[in-house]
Simulated assay, not measured.
Amino acid sequence: MMKDLILLLRPHQWVKNGFVFLPLFFSGQILNIDYLLATVVAFFSFSFVASSIYCFNDIWDVEADRKHAKKRFRPIASGRVSKRAGYGLMIAMVVLSIVLAGCYFRGDVLYRVLGILLFYYVMNIAYCIKLKNFVLVDVFIIAVGFVLRVLLGGVVTGIWVSHWIVLMTFLLALFLAFAKRRDDVVVYEETGVLLRKKVNRYNLEFMNQVITILATIIMVCYIMYTVSEEVVSRMGSPYLYVTSVFVLAGLIRYLQLTIVDVKSGSPTRVLMHDRFIQLCIVAWILSFLIIIYF
């Protein structure tokens, strides 16, 4: 039972909440213990809220999940966890998130943190109930969710979040969301099975063009970021452009997984299992650490 409850929370998806660390990382303050601790608290507060939404999603979609080849094995869809237990866990995660934030943050910071968490929560509940059935709206909501993670990281540390970070986070999340939807389109065109409503409003030609355009914009935007006078001055190094190599390699690899291997259905699973992308990320982080901190 405990294992199934943990599966219901989808803790492996918490890796996406690592975006709250971006303001801290790019500011060069990663070694500031106070900032780091505040960001860790924000990470877990956001993760608990996200897990609450996963519980609600599995409860709301239980009938559809039972007809799905893979989702039918989820704790609630399989019957291993009752809806009542799912609702209880959902509420517990929200309470835990609020208590954690309330115990650490104070004043305006606490109100802003709770405001971001509430906005994210309401937006995603609406997404689960209705908005995910609207073409394009669904992927844009996912992208906004990642921007909220970044903004939360800025709020709890007091670090200014630049337009560069917001823009690149939004574009990258949009790219990953469209790549994920592409897998649903492939299944629909091969089997006629609608894994999501309105998937038939997409086709492979459209999806390929969209993710290619987004990948191009992301790369151009990132290069502009690394050579921006403002950023070079703030980072204190003219060599930021070197990190573009790892971003380009990672994007090309993800396009290969998406278009050739059709394995982009879960960005989290790709991140946790693809060694090439993991190597690109590690090399990117190490290069930034050297440039910023040494």
Rank of each mutant, 00 (worst) to 15 (best):
H163N: 15
I285M: 15
S237N: 14
V166E: 02
M207R: 00
T169K: 01
W160F: 13
T226Q: 00
L174S: 06
F206N: 00
L279N: 00
T212Q: 12
Y241K: 08
C221Y: 11
D183K: 10
V166T: 11
K263A: 06
I285E: 05
V199P: 03
L174Q: 06
G250C: 10
V282Q: 03
L251A: 10
L214M: 09
K198T: 13
V232L: 04
S287V: 13
R181G: 10
W164C: 12
V187Q: 03
Q278V: 02
T216D: 04
V260G: 00
T258R: 07
K180Q: 08
Y239L: 14
E230L: 04
V166Y: 03
K198D: 12
Y188S: 10
I281D: 00
V227R: 01
V210K: 00
W284A: 15
Q278P: 09
I217Q: 03
V262C: 06
I217E: 02
V262K: 14
L194P: 01
Y222A: 14
L174T: 11
M224E: 13
A283Q: 00
V186G: 04
L251R: 02
C280R: 00
C280I: 07
M219V: 13
Q209P: 00
Q256G: 01
I223H: 00
I159P: 01
M219H: 07
V161C: 00
R253V: 11
T191S: 15
N208K: 04
T191V: 11
Q209M: 08
E230N: 08
G192T: 12
L172A: 11
H273S: 15
H163L: 11
R201V: 01
C280S: 03
E229Q: 14
S266L: 03
M235E: 04
I165Q: 12
V247W: 07
